[in-house]
Write a protein that binds this DNA or RNA. Structure first.
Lengths: 197, 197
DNA sequence: TAAATAAGATACTTTAAGTTTCTTATTTGC
DNA sequence: GCAAATAAGAAACTTAAAGTATCTTATTTA
């Protein structure tokens, strides 16, 4: 099944970063298949073809290993932000991209992590190095250049508003947003606030 | 310490609803002191002066008993919604009331519950019987009567928007909102969308 | 007041976290 | 190329807590 298993009895003993990467990959697979509550250290050890001792040499406990497995993936690629030629479609595109990815899986893991690492607020898990407004800055700057939006309209709140509402929706309902919801956020809330009139 | 303990060796054996209420109270106290991850059935049994068998006769597992303990409190009192004479202050009041209560404790419990009751989205825990828009309906209707808002402005999204943003804030940062945040939500986002002009 | 019911105590099983110890493969430094 | 150091892997162990089962005893109800 998982190629992380096959590699193992046949090949040589893995070490260092290679081994670590295989383990964290196994954590993500277990997370996806079984969810945080049913993820076991024995399961991770077996899937990654190693032993629990190896896991505990690197991470202090279950929460830490899951945190590491998620963090490795979090540095969201800030790939080219597509330009649809108008603010409305650009923002809809940003929200649609939030539907993608493994947001459901991630959210489930986050819940478990917040429970076990009591002190840590969700924000520091979702945004390990502070909130990233770069995408929306690009999108809004384009809109200013096109004359759709006036520069003064770009406030911190306006950089995060659509994504905040989308995230709220994803967290609450734990499923991708409908096109109708996306349209509602953009047309009924966001555009009336930022579009020049 | 907890008076749920004292009542017990001295007094008669409790039964039915009285016993149940004492148990759920003990769950809430454990939740507050130890958090969901460290709440144990033995701990609850001891604190409520009963035994685990009694707990398992009523609830199937840990998640169920915590859910019951929280639900008992959730039916938020729809007490008189205070009328400050203008929409801005009314909405600020609603958001401030969300800062109150045991939202932090509740949120922590919700995280744990979502993790264990995998299928259940947060929304069905926070709003067991659907979202309650009554408070905002009252507040907005008043604003219409005052002439601050036109009736067409009252859409479903406008009933939930300020609370959605506030909840997002509470979930993400797990601490009460600052007055500045409340003002930002109301003045920069909400009022410009609904106030007649 | 006897029978039925539910509370409370206690011991048990099982699962999984986390630890310890030992063996063996791989690397590194000479 | 070889010896010493290092890290991987296997397996047995301890502990904590969930959940179960059994028994005794208080309280209710008919």
């Amino acid at each position: 099944m998982s190629n992380s298993q096959d590699q193992n009895k046949l090949k040589t003993r893995r070490r260092g970063k290679e081994l670590e990467a295989a383990i964290l990959q196994a954590v993500r697979e277990e997370l996806k298949e079984r969810g945080y509550a049913n993820l076991t250290m024995d399961g991770v050890a077996e899937r990654s073809g190693t032993s629990k001792a190896v896991l505990y040499r690197r991470w202090a406990n279950r929460a830490e290993i899951v945190l590491a497995a998620i963090r490795e993936r979090v540095p969201l690629p800030l790939e080219e932000v597509p330009d649809y030629g108008n603010l409305r479609d650009d923002v809809c595109g940003v929200l649609r991209s939030m539907n993608q990815n493994n947001i459901e899986v991630m959210m489930k893991a986050f819940y478990g992590l917040v429970t076990e690492i009591g002190a840590m607020p969700l924000a520091s898990l979702i945004f390990p190095e502070g909130r990233d407004n770069r995408t929306m800055t690009i999108v809004l700057q384009r809109a200013v250049d096109r004359g759709e939006v006036s520069a003064e309209a770009i406030t911190p709140r306006m950089l995060t508003l659509p994504a905040d509402l989308a995230r709220h929706e994803l967290i609450l309902y734990n499923r991708p947003m409908s096109e109708q919801t996306i349209a509602e956020i953009v047309d009924e809330v966001y555009l009336p606030l930022v579009i020049k009139r």
